[in-house]
Design a protein around this nucleic acid. Structure first.
Lengths: 286, 286
DNA sequence: GACATTCTCTGACCTTAGTCAGACAACTGG
DNA sequence: CCAGTTGTCTGACTAAGGTCAGAGAATGTC
């Protein structure tokens, strides 16, 4: 289906959704407390959370978050403690009252879902659930956030570790990453604060950039994330002044090779001495 | 599928949706103007609108709507004229500048849809579109609003007209509504200001209420709306002090009969002299 | 050990989004 | 033609939901 034909349905749905469920959501969850505070309370969760993490996840201004948390502490719903591992940070935990309030939110959220699902027949329910499940996956995939990171940042390290582990799993004789090599500019794709794809560009010479460490999370394969990351890295290489990109890969990584070919990469001769590489590609950047 | 099993998916989707698309929506549409004003502008549409209708559709406070419209007129985007048919009412029409702004919103909305759809492969797009289409229908069905109305109100008249027209179409010898009879309490189900289902309860005696003029819009059959209206009318009858409800119907209305049986109605003897009736039902109200 | 950075918090400030009561004009039913 | 209703508008008010600059402590880096 063409992009244009898809957007109609999407827009119609968006309208239906914001009008109906959005309104319901507010009337259900925002009782007694403003909606934002309720959502924050819910997001803290029964196990508590780091303030830092909350700020990232909810994308809030730090001053604003402090104030929201103030309201929750004033109401006796949460306690703030300094993080034992890092004295600058705080962690939030729910008090007993907070736990009760959290469960009440949980109940309301469940009740909201019920009012929506109950009028439907079992068959319709099945259809709705299947539809929403699909939509959820695809919407998540489409709204993943790509961000440049230094390869030494925790998120990048995590992604790299996943990448190496996968190579080790898939190569017949395993994989040894050797000395850590942090040359290049790296990009991580995150969803809910978890790395789901990764990759980087290392300059080989003025013209040429090399695409490195392309990785996509298992659960996210087939969601178009790989091609998206690849396009993103090509843009990055272009911005870095390169006019072509190259990459190497191993013959066992069939999906990757297929993707490179789909994306307009052409086979070339060996250009490096990477012992694990079995195929080399290049693509000119227009 | 059970209600409980369904709510998980729904809640997860709701979370994904409000977090991602909700946020995108704001950043896309709310540029320059607050989101509410933008939405209002969009809702007015290229053909203009009655203020009264806008208030109904968007469920806004009249004072608030006046003020929102003020901002749009101040910005030179819309003009307000008195309705020629009724001097109390106003109609809003877009100015040339308003039309331009409207188209820009349209473009942005389209662009938002694109950013969501574009990262997907054509196959995934198909899946997303199908899923959202289904979800849209079912969410609409589940969030229809039921409201008591005097049977003389325009909305009720419309629904009654649809009902009579359908009987006339389906009965072999047509249907003649005869003298208008407005006895009873009526309920209309509306979606986006259009009646989609209708029905009423007329007291026969202290114990007994009669369910009358049950009608569901063609496009909405099979969405559980009929059973929902029926349940609603039973509740209404209960509130009116009745302990049982009865109804009559015609043999050609097979779906209706099946629905009554599913809902616990039992066949009884003829209890009235309605020449069109061929089957009579009753149900005790617990 | 100095310097830059990170994290939380505070004060000052602002817009958005709404509610409520009442004024006033236009219409409707008897 | 009069009493009640409907539709719009105004004034007065409130809560929600932020933004921005900077202070001050804790930590990392050289």
């Amino acid at each position: 289906m063409s992009v244009a034909a898809s957007t109609d349905t999407l827009r119609r749905f968006n309208r239906t959704y914001t009008q109906r469920i959005g309104a319901l959501d507010e009337s259900f969850l925002g009782t007694g407390r403003p909606l934002g505070v309720s959502r924050l309370l819910f997001e803290i969760g029964l196990d508590g959370s780091g303030v830092r993490e909350l700020r990232e996840r909810l994308d809030l201004d730090s001053g604003y978050l402090t104030r929201l948390l103030r309201r929750l502490t004033d109401d006796g719903l949460v306690d703030l403690h300094p993080d034992p591992a890092d004295g600058r940070r705080r962690v939030v935990v729910l008090t007993d009252a907070g736990r009760t309030a959290w469960r009440e939110l949980e109940d309301r959220s469940e009740a909201l879902a019920r009012t929506l699902v109950e009028p439907l027949t079992p068959r319709q329910r099945d259809r709705l659930v299947a539809a929403l499940h699909t939509a959820d996956l695809l919407v998540r995939a489409a709204t993943v956030r790509l961000r440049e990171v230094p390869p030494t940042e925790p998120m990048a390290r995590q992604a790299t570790a996943h990448y190496f582990a996968e190579l080790d799993r898939r190569f017949p004789d395993g994989f040894d990453p050797g000395e850590p090599d942090h040359a290049g500019t790296f990009v991580v794709a995150t969803s809910d604060g978890v790395p789901v794809a990764y990759g980087g560009v290392r300059p080989i010479d003025d013209e040429t950039g090399e695409i490195k460490r392309m990785w996509v999370h298992d659960d996210w394969r087939g969601a178009g994330l790989g091609s998206r990351m690849l396009r993103h890295l090509e843009d990055l290489a272009r911005r870095l002044g390169h006019t072509r990109v190259v990459l190497d890969t191993n013959g066992t990584l069939l999906e990757a090779i297929a993707m490179y070919e789909r994306a307009g990469y052409a086979h070339i001769e060996r250009y490096n001495d990477n012992p694990y590489a079995e195929a080399w590609f290049e693509k000119p950047l227009s």
